[in-house]
Design a protein around this nucleic acid. Structure first.
Lengths: 370, 370
DNA sequence: CTGAAAGCGCTTACAG
DNA sequence: CTGAAAGCGCTTACAG
């Protein structure tokens, strides 16, 4: 059997209560220095470990933060989840990961909460759930958890929850980022700017895109939803789907609207697909068409034409999220926070030096290819 | 406060013990049907949930399986981890993920065990830890956990533990796979076969490579360790590193040994890098050089020259691992298992129809490029 | 600064 | 089939 407080108490000739105090970081100051040292020495010698269940039962909560993450096979999603986990560790919190997938099928917020509470977390951090987790479900979940005494943080969801929801929330500023991307193209002289975005990117990409056009007094829009080209079947990786979607969507759009001279793509994968698609109809980047991506995946700067894109401030978001969590657990009871982290526009070469005139080459017939 | 057994007992007019039995899947048969129904109805009405800490304290262990996974940003690693998690759920087990990274820094097996036991898992499944977790560390860990009453399963580690280690283990048969890949090339007539592998792939790739050559009575070897080109700095993704490594290694090897007509690559990423590298010195695939990859990543079949490679039997391995775990928890006390899952050779076009003669083109000077 | 005692919510022989 | 009671290992007012 494992060593218990009682065993240490007996050897040290003190009560269990004293040992409990001595071995608790926050209450060890109540114990006389000499006694403290003796107890610690004996605990070490015996190889003592707290029994987390007994501790949690007595205190009323466990010491662990559950990190609910949407683990798709998508590169960016994975990186973000890993970074947030690291940040929690850095903040001195013990964290375990619950893949959202395992909760998704449960359906109701009530059932999801029940499942989460099975591991009796001290707090729950939710990292950008799959897009089919609607905001209302998430909001309900926060309410239920809060009622059961568990604090929730929503990190990097595509929408911030309403102010009334009892949870902190932090996300990247997708709208501003999209606005900056399109503004960048407008400043380079482009007037007919295509948008290749999927439905789950609606909130950020499309709103920002429209906002930038509105600001510049441009009304015509060239939006190409790529959903029709994408199947998010779980056994197929997001990667190849997105590339293929961009490949087809870019060609469709340029064929339909040959006046388009620039593309803002919902992701870098879509962007490289679009580049291939453009090449397939005889258009080159950036001479004929300028391209902006989204995410700044690591290979973006290594492309034949390095990609101008929007960066993901993963470190900042993770660090801030962890700090909010830590503060709440330490007793911070200020009003619920709603924070947005700016996303940088990273200018490389895929937008060239600016639009210098009408496109030199007409859109060719697509070559047979995949 | 939450609903407790006591609350239900009072409303139902029975003792806590009866409620406890009624609400336990395995002991509910001890309760009279009528009483059972009444208790269940009341529990539902009150929204009762077991307190996992109290339960775990009373029973002596919790109901959750900790899944320790090496979460690198590598695609294959991520996929494998996700699949194993799903398989555990499918086997009716509640599983939480502990990123190995959070344990890695602890150093000693004793400390890692202590940290793992903090969440007092019912069992621990370890999925191919990072390569710097030496087998001995892993073996020690299993021993400590076992002594503390926790069963361990080692899934997909590159080496199986020794028979004495108190744990089950299942891995893919990397050695056989490498042997099959090289045999395939030998059968196609190749005699000078290069190997591009990194140190952490040593166990499988190199052993299998040598074994195939030995079987065919060929002694000369062309091994190119790619480690020198790869830096596994945690903030850089494995992806771009591996491609670049293959790019450089292939050129180096062909320059040094121009008689080489085939390459067996440690991963598909290395393989596509190698393809680019070969193109850079004027060699084409498969006409001049045949290539075999490893992993069968989803884009392999979409390359200009679809890649012949080794497939990862992720589903089989995950399902079998989950089944072993489930059986052990159900009381299976047969001898510790050591299982290997075969990996399929997937023949596409990167090895052509066979070697038809000496290479048509000499190796050119490398073009300036990256 | 320390101890005796009650309590956290559940399970499980034991006795009926 | 059911209940009274002890116990899992820890914490925390309360009293000294």
């Amino acid at each position: 059997m494992n060593v218990r407080l009682k065993d240490i108490a007996r050897q040290a000739g003190v009560s269990e209560a004293t040992v409990s105090r001595a071995l608790s970081p926050s209450r060890s100051s109540m114990v006389r220095a000499e006694t403290l040292a003796r107890i610690r020495r004996i605990a070490d010698a015996l190889g003592y470990h707290h029994n987390p269940h007994a501790q949690a039962l007595a205190i009323g909560r466990s010491a662990v933060v559950s990190l609910v993450v949407a683990y798709t096979e998508d590169y960016m999603m994975n990186v973000k989840a890993l970074r947030l986990h690291s940040a929690l560790l850095d903040a001195g919190l013990q964290a375990q990961i619950i893949p959202a997938q395992s909760l998704q099928d449960l359906g109701s917020a009530e059932k999801i909460a029940a499942s989460l509470l099975l591991s009796a977390p001290m707090a729950v951090a939710i990292r950008s759930l799959a897009t089919n987790w609607h905001l209302e479900l998430l909001e309900d979940l926060c309410g239920i958890l809060w009622d059961r005494g568990v604090y929730t943080l929503i990190a990097d969801h595509h929408q911030l929850p309403s102010d009334a929801v009892p949870a902190d929330a932090i996300s990247t500023d997708r709208v501003r980022a999209a606005e900056a991307a399109v503004s960048h193209l407008l400043k380079l002289g482009h007037r007919c700017i295509g948008l290749l975005a999927s439905a789950d990117q609606t909130f950020g990409r499309i709103v920002g895109y429209r906002r930038a056009l509105d600001e510049h007094g441009i009304s015509e829009r060239y939006e190409q939803p790529i959903d029709q080209y994408v199947e998010y079947a779980p056994e197929r990786p997001y990667l190849s789907q997105a590339v293929q979607a961009g490949y087809l969507a870019a060609q469709d759009l340029l064929r339909r609207c040959p006046e388009v001279t620039a593309l803002f793509c919902g992701s870098d994968l879509v962007a490289i697909g679009a580049m291939r698609g453009l090449a397939n109809v005889g258009l080159s980047v950036p001479a004929d068409v300028a391209i902006v991506g989204f995410n700044d995946e690591p290979w973006c700067s290594h492309l034949p034409v390095p990609l101008t894109t929007i960066g993901q401030p993963v470190e900042q978001l993770s660090a801030r999220a962890a700090e909010m969590l830590r503060a709440r657990l330490a007793g911070d009871d200020s009003p619920w926070r709603r924070e947005l982290v700016p996303m940088p526009l990273i200018v490389r070469e895929s937008c060239g030096q600016g639009l210098v005139g009408p496109r030199r080459w007409p859109v060719q017939e697509a070559v047979e290819s995949s």
